[in-house]
Nucleic acid binder design. Structure first.
Length: 421
RNA sequence: GGAGACGUCGCAUAGUCCGGCCGAGUGCACCACCCUGCUAAGGUGGAGUCCCCGUAAGGGGACCAGGGGUUCAAAUCCCCUCGUCUCCGCCA
């Protein structure tokens, strides 16, 4: 949620941000008006309530014979208080509705525009060349008996898969490698719930633009999370946490569920886009002043993973219109996928500044002793999709795959994945 | 699934039966000062969160798990939801 004080005092700043996102700046005016209406309603109600409170004391102290008359008088006042109270509730609901239409304020330097207006910050590594016709990840996965799509479909439907044998081991190895690095960097591992209550799902902002991609269990009113970010952000909801000695960092390990509504026909082959996958997610709660530096650190850890896995990648600064409502800036690291001849997103790291924390009511105590919202940041350290780039990049003519050195320790020293005869 | 108990200001509790003097007492912990010369105790004071008005000083409102209701008035009475605990049943 946008800072209401900022909305009041500097609506133009928010309008500029909305324009960068390609969204209506009229929402800002609506929110400002709703805020004014809300405050007026509060003032009216509080004056009446003060009167009622004073009256109540009189009634309590009045001698018995005078009480009846006073009570009769108070009844009329009570009616007005009730109406004013209802007016406040209505005005607050309208304000919330209006302000929730506003996305986080985009940081300086974020490119304007939509999905295709990203800026490439850097390309790292050589585009791999093959002396043979490279196989795509699914073909390799099947040669290795590592990925089983047909049985995934039989049991659960399209976009479900089994990871088997070295495939299963490879994913666990990758996750463990990420986890070890996260721990070394000061992250506390956290295996999170993947079913969450509506208020948490809403608080993290995923019921906005992503609402149709979210699985929902109406019977028990629970949402399946598409990323552990939801449970990680919700972890400290309604709390005042101590970030005076540096960020509070968690590495969340969870299965993720995405319905992928609206992406029919896209990436239907293999495990690039599936309904269920695993992910290791970094999450930081931090003093807002340090958020941008932390964002760079998260990005560096992500890049370190890609580099040590021998993957070729580029880093993009996502355009404002492609940010998602909570993020003020987002970097994607995209790995080269040889058979697609394209970079595909493997990680994403977002700086949500205080937007998400304000919505979830996560605060810290500033030096002056006041409370203020913290900043939250998140970034992917490993996911199932990485197997695509690893398998394709390190494949050999005979169908085997060389295991990147950094991963071998997590596979019992295995240096090469061999096709199953 | 059945039966019951409970949810109060960091922690522990009082208050709820019999509504107003309770935004709320006490203990511990905390902060400041004082006292004491010894490793701990004593004294005084302070301190919650959120919001509104105000340049400010200050004033006002809300908050007793959450929501709704009764009432002139609700921590206290009624209903619902959530959570915790105990017992029984069930358990791939």
């Amino acid at each position: 949620m946008i800072d209401p004080v900022l909305l009041r005092e500097n609506p133009d700043l928010i309008k500029r941000s909305q324009e960068l996102r390609g969204e209506s700046s009229e929402y800002v005016d609506e929110a400002v008006a709703a805020d004014a209406a809300r405050r007026t309603a509060i003032t009216v109600f509080e004056a009446l309530r003060a009167e009622q409170n004073a009256f109540g004391k009189q009634v309590a102290q009045a001698p018995k014979d005078a009480k009846a008359a006073l009570v009769a008088q108070a009844q009329e006042l009570a009616g007005r208080v009730k109406a004013a109270n209802q007016a406040v509730s209505d005005a607050e609901a309208s304000f919330t509705l209006a302000v929730q239409k506003l996305g986080n304020i985009v940081l300086d330097g974020v490119p304007a525009g939509g999905e295709d207006d990203y800026i490439v910050l850097r390309e790292v590594g050589e585009i791999p060349a093959f002396a043979f016709e490279p196989r795509d990840h699914l073909e390799i996965g099947e040669l290795l008996d590592a990925i089983d799509m047909p049985r995934g479909a039989k049991v659960s439907g399209a976009r479900f898969h089994y990871l088997k044998g070295v495939g299963a081991r490879l994913e666990l190895a990758l996750m463990n490698m990420g986890l070890d690095r996260a721990i070394a960097a000061g992250f506390t591992p956290l295996i999170t719930p993947t079913l969450v209550r509506p208020e948490i799902m809403n608080g993290t902002g995923f019921l906005g633009a992503h609402a149709d991609e979210v699985y929902y269990l109406p019977e028990q009113e629970l949402y399946l999370t598409g990323t552990s970010e939801v449970a990680l952000a919700g972890y400290h909801a309604d709390e005042i946490i101590d970030v005076s000695n540096g960020p509070v960092r968690y590495a969340g390990w969870s299965t993720c569920y995405r319905s992928e509504a609206g992406s029919h026909g896209k990436d239907t082959r293999g495990i690039i886009r599936v309904h269920q996958f695993n992910k290791l997610e970094m999450f930081s709660y931090i003093d807002p002043a340090d958020a941008e530096a932390e964002h760079q650190r998260l990005l560096a850890w992500q890049e370190g993973m890609l580099q040590d896995l021998g993957l070729t990648y580029r880093v993009i600064d996502t355009a404002a219109g492609d940010l998602g409502s909570s993020a003020a800036r987002k970097y994607d690291v995209e790995a080269w996928v040889p058979t697609q001849g394209a970079y595909r997103e493997l990680t994403s790291t977002s700086n949500c500044t205080t937007f998400q924390a304000r919505r979830l009511d996560i605060r810290h105590r500033t030096e002056s002793g006041k409370t203020a919202p913290v900043a939250t940041l998140n970034g992917t350290l490993a996911t199932t999709r990485w197997l695509v780039a690893i398998l394709e990049t390190h494949q050999q003519a005979d169908g085997s795959v060389v295991v990147p050195e950094a991963l071998r320790g997590y596979l019992g020293g295995l240096e090469r994945l061999e096709p199953v005869a």
